[in-house]
Each structure stands twice: as C-alpha cells, then as structure tokens.
Design a protein around this nucleic acid. Structure first.
Lengths: 234, 234
DNA sequence: CACCGATGTATCTATGCGGACACAACGTCG
DNA sequence: CGACGTTGTGTCCGCATAGATACATCGGTG
C-alpha cells in the first residue's frame, strides 16, 4: 500500500531549518550543553557545533553558549529558538493531519473562474473550489474528509446565512468508528464523499448506514489540480 | 520572515518516491525516452536509468522500455506510473494548502479526553479538538483558517443537526480581499480567529468590520500539540 | 549487413555530508 | 596555579550521491 509522507521545513531568509535541526535544538534544551546533546543524539560534537554556528549566522541568535566556569560551561536556547521549535511543531502537526486524513477526489472541468476560485462540474454536481491559476481543465478536485460537515437534511442552514458554498444530499454508505473518531462514507449520485466526525457528533446526528444526510464543505477547503492522467487513480 | 515549507514523499513498502522521482517520470512521459529525459533535465543518463531500475525493483513496473527499432527504441510510462504522479500531485496540492493557509492558535489545557478527541479550555472557551495520545497539557490548538465557517448569528444551525462541534460568537475585526479570496479576522473574547472565505460568500453574508458573526469549525479540523515553550509564539 | 538511436552496464571521479580525532581557549574551584 | 568540563577550530577519512565516459546490446531501415 502507498503511504503519504512529508518532511517539514521552515525557511528564514535563505536558511532552511529541518526536522533534524529542531531535534538538535531540543536535545540542547534537554541536556543543557552541546556536548551532552551530541552524546544524547549519538552524533559528533563537531558537527552539532558547526551546525549551530551556521544556523545562527543565517537566522540570528538561537543559543547562549558559555565556556568555562564551575560546571565547565553550557548552552541554553534563546526564546527565539523556543519559538522556532513551537512553530515547527505546529507545522508538523498540520502536515501530519494532511497525510493522515483521507480525501475524496472528483474529476471534472472548470466552467467559471474568478480569481483563485472556480466552479468545477463533477459527477456529484458543481463544486466551488480553489483553482490555482496554473491548473488547467480537466482537473481533479480533492476534498479533505476533516473539512466535510454533515447535517440532517432538513437542518441544513439557509444558503444566505453561511459561508459554506458546497452542499450535497446523499445517503450514508459506511460508518467506521475507531478511537473516538468516525469515518463516514456518503454516497452522492453514486460517488463517495468521505467525512471525518467525532463519535459524539455521530451519535448526536444519529447516523446509520442508509440514512439521508446533507454533506457540505467550504470552497476554500477544496483544491483542484490539473488532471494529467487518463487512467483513474488510487 | 519565516516561511513554512515541506517536501512531499510517497512510500510504497520500503521505497520512497520523492519530488525528484516524479519530475523524472514526468520528463520521461514528456520526451518519450530516458536519454531525452536526461538531456531535458540536464542530468546524466546513467543516473536516470539506474534510478528507474531501482524504483521498479522496489515498487513494480513503472515504464515500458524498448531498445532497437526504427526510432531506436524509447520509454513510456505505465498506468501505474501515471497514477503515482497523480497521487503525488494531490498530496503536493494538499500540503501546499497547509503551508499557504494561515492558522489561529489558542493556548489551553486538556480537560476531557475520549480516544483521540479532547476538550481544551482556552481563552475563547472550550474547544473540541483532535488530541493525539502523545500530546500533554498544556497544549496549543491550531485551527486552519480554511476550515472555519462563518454564519450570521441567528442563522447558525441547531446544534443537534450538524456535525460541527465548536461554535463561537464574535465580531469581524478585519477583512482583506485578494484575488477572489477573503481573509477575515474574527475577534472572540479579545482573541482573533482567522477565517478564509470566497469573495462571493463574503458579499452574500454582507460582512463588514464590526459585524457580529458566528464562527464554527469541526473538532477534527482542530489539532492540539503539547506546549513546550514558555514564551509566546509567532 | 552496416548504420542509427535508443537502452543496458561497468568503472572512474568529483562533491558534499558527517563522524573521528586532536588541540586550543575559557573560567571557576580546590 | 593546576584540574576540569565545557566550547571553539582544524584536519582527515569513510560513505553516499551523481556526473562522465566507455562500451555492449537491441532491432528496424536503407
């Protein structure tokens, strides 16, 4: 089976901070010295020291290093370094979300465009989606399952009162609960749209296979990519 | 300024396909031969050929290579290779979404947990969010702006009829239109939640600075990360 | 049957990354 | 003032990546 992965990076100017660098900073924070961090990571001191100097020359102070003294000295992280780690963690978490959550794909052609937003005619009907300028018809539209909202058919909000631009009526085709999270398949015009719900929401809506539901998602959560292939995917 | 980036990968078994490999396959598809692809990419033929063989030995047939013949032979991609490219494109598009879209962050502590879902007490109130087992209080909760739905205060759907678990009343604090897409800042209890809307939705809801709105998002679209830092971020 | 243009394959080399190691510098403490 | 545990620096080596080159192979075509 094919698995989606990534490597996160943070760029500051022309410097690029990778997961390795963050790991390095964390080790320094944990141990209080470069040499102990090197030992803890099983890497050479020389390399760590050089990398720290290189990073600091590119993106400014990250550590306060001190040599000599009662304890022989040591290295501590600056606030800037802590912030960097925090930012990296958030990015990593978000990207992990993307690779974890599954996605529904619909083929179609772009009919209307205004700026970055376009309307794509698909098998389940028109989808308002984010269509970058560079993408060309035919396209595939991807919808993240964690962006799909389910409502009871009659409970769907008035179109003039919400910012959700895509709404489709369908039937629940599959329910798969796991660890407080429920994956739901919604069959719309013979095609499946997948949604991710909390178990609580699922019981609250009282969803079961065969029930009618209204699935909706924001245009900004749907993304179109040019469809280069002739064959189907997955 | 610091920019978020990534490198996408697809793993099949123990093989990992990178952007470079996809570029390679695309060049083969475009030119019809390994040697022409190598020239087109400005890389050595030997390396390309080796990489193709390596990839195929790990993940199965990707090309039909033929030598001899009127044209001397050539190389074409199999459907499997096309599918691989398509999958990669989708992943790339989604990840790009993450790094492009901005995110609101709230600090808080986890109070209730059931499976992967937890309740985080924050400055804007309780947030139901995805809290991986490994994450510990205190946490920071990140909410992608493209997952935030805005409604008119009175138009918000009945809580029993929707799968959105987080809903907050606030006031529009900023509106920034660009290229058919509107970034909106919503002030909730003195803290800002950012939302991404289509220009159309924005005019439909008739949003302007100072207007009251109801902002909501799904629990599965909010992610918590342990808050290691003492300092604030960004 | 030689030619051509492509694919296979082997070998050599340049480059960069990172570990290993040696040694200097530093500042407090006994 | 010497010991100690750090940081700072330079040099060497092993390894992996990838270009350069050379040569064999294949199969139509003139």
């Amino acid at each position: 089976m094919t698995e989606r992965g990534f490597e996160a990076t943070l760029s500051i100017g022309d410097a690029t901070v990778t997961a390795k660098d963050i790991e390095l900073l964390r080790a320094i924070d944990r141990t209080g010295s470069l040499s102990a961090a090197a030992a803890s990571l099983g890497r050479s001191y020389a390399h760590l020291q050089r990398r720290v100097v290189e990073l600091e020359s590119e993106i400014g102070s990250l550590t306060t290093r001190q040599r000599g003294g009662a304890d022989g000295g040591g290295t501590a992280l600056t606030d800037r370094a802590h912030q960097l780690c925090a930012r990296f963690d958030r990015l990593h978490a978000e990207l992990t979300g993307v690779t974890t959550v599954d996605e529904s794909v619909f083929h179609g052609t772009v009919t209307v465009r205004s700026g970055q937003i376009g309307t794509v005619e698909t098998d389940i009907g028109p989808i308002r989606a984010l269509v970058p300028e560079t993408e060309r018809t035919p396209v595939r539209v991807g919808v993240r399952s964690d962006a799909v909202v389910l409502d009871t058919p009659d409970g769907a909000a008035n179109e003039n009162e919400t910012s959700r631009r895509n709404s489709y009526d369908g039937k629940v085709s599959s329910v798969d609960t796991q660890d407080g999270i429920v994956r739901i398949g919604v069959s719309i015009n013979g095609h499946e749209l997948r949604a991710l719900l909390t178990a609580e929401s699922c019981t609250r809506l009282d969803l079961a296979v065969g029930d009618p539901v209204c699935a909706s998602f924001k245009a900004t959560a749907a993304r179109a990519v040019t469809d280069r292939s002739t064959a189907d995917n997955r």
